[in-house]
Amino acid sequence: MTKNDLVTLIEKKRAELISVAITNGLTSSVAIRYSQELDHLLNEYHRVYIKKIPSSAC
């Protein structure tokens, strides 16, 4: 996966989270799941492109 692919996924997941949160609330199970998925993508971006920390630390 390229850096641009990962950034695109992050932007898409962020937009989905915002939409779900507006519709169902920030504490809905769907919003929480999307938030966790976004966190995972952001952690991956940070691991690969920012800090270069081992994936086992995430």
Rank of each mutant, 00 (worst) to 15 (best):
Ile32Asn: 10
His40Val: 15
His46Asp: 15
Val20Pro: 00
Glu16Cys: 01
Ser28Asp: 14
Leu38Thr: 06
Arg33Val: 03
Ile50Phe: 00
Ile50Leu: 13
Asn4Lys: 14
Ala15Gly: 00
Tyr34Leu: 15
Ile22Ala: 09
Lys13Gly: 03
Glu44Gly: 00
Ser55Gly: 03
Tyr34Glu: 11
Tyr49Pro: 06
Ile10Trp: 01
Ala31Phe: 05
Leu17Glu: 04
Ser55Val: 09
Ser29Thr: 06
Leu26Trp: 08
Asp39Cys: 10
Arg33His: 02
Tyr34Phe: 10
Thr27Trp: 02
Ile50Val: 15
Gln36Lys: 08
Ser55Arg: 05
Tyr45Ser: 07
Leu17Asp: 06
Glu44Ile: 05
Leu41Tyr: 05
Arg14Phe: 02
Asn24Ala: 10
Ser56Ile: 10
Tyr34Cys: 13
Ala57Trp: 13
Val20His: 00
Thr27Met: 08
Asn24Lys: 10
Ser28Gly: 04
Ser56Phe: 07
Arg33Phe: 00
Tyr34Met: 10
Leu41Arg: 02
Tyr49Trp: 09
Glu44Pro: 02
Val30Gly: 00
Leu6Ser: 09
Gln36Glu: 13
Ile32Tyr: 06
Leu17Asn: 03
Leu42Cys: 11
Lys12Thr: 13
Met1Phe: 05
Lys3Cys: 11
Ala21Arg: 01
Lys3Met: 12
Asp39Val: 07
Ala21Gln: 05
Lys12His: 08
Thr23Phe: 04
Ser55Tyr: 00
Leu41Asn: 04
Arg47Gln: 10
Ile50His: 04
Ala31Gln: 05
Tyr49Cys: 05
Glu44Trp: 01
Lys3Val: 06
Ala57Thr: 14
Asn24Asp: 15
Ser35Asn: 15
Lys13Pro: 01
Ile50Thr: 15
His40Cys: 11
Thr27Val: 10
Tyr34Arg: 07
Glu11His: 07
Leu9Gly: 02
Ser35Phe: 03
Leu26Ser: 14
Lys13Ser: 08
Ser19Arg: 01
His40Lys: 08
Leu17Ala: 03
Leu41Asp: 07
Ser35Trp: 03
Ser56Asp: 15
Ser55Phe: 03
Ala31Glu: 09
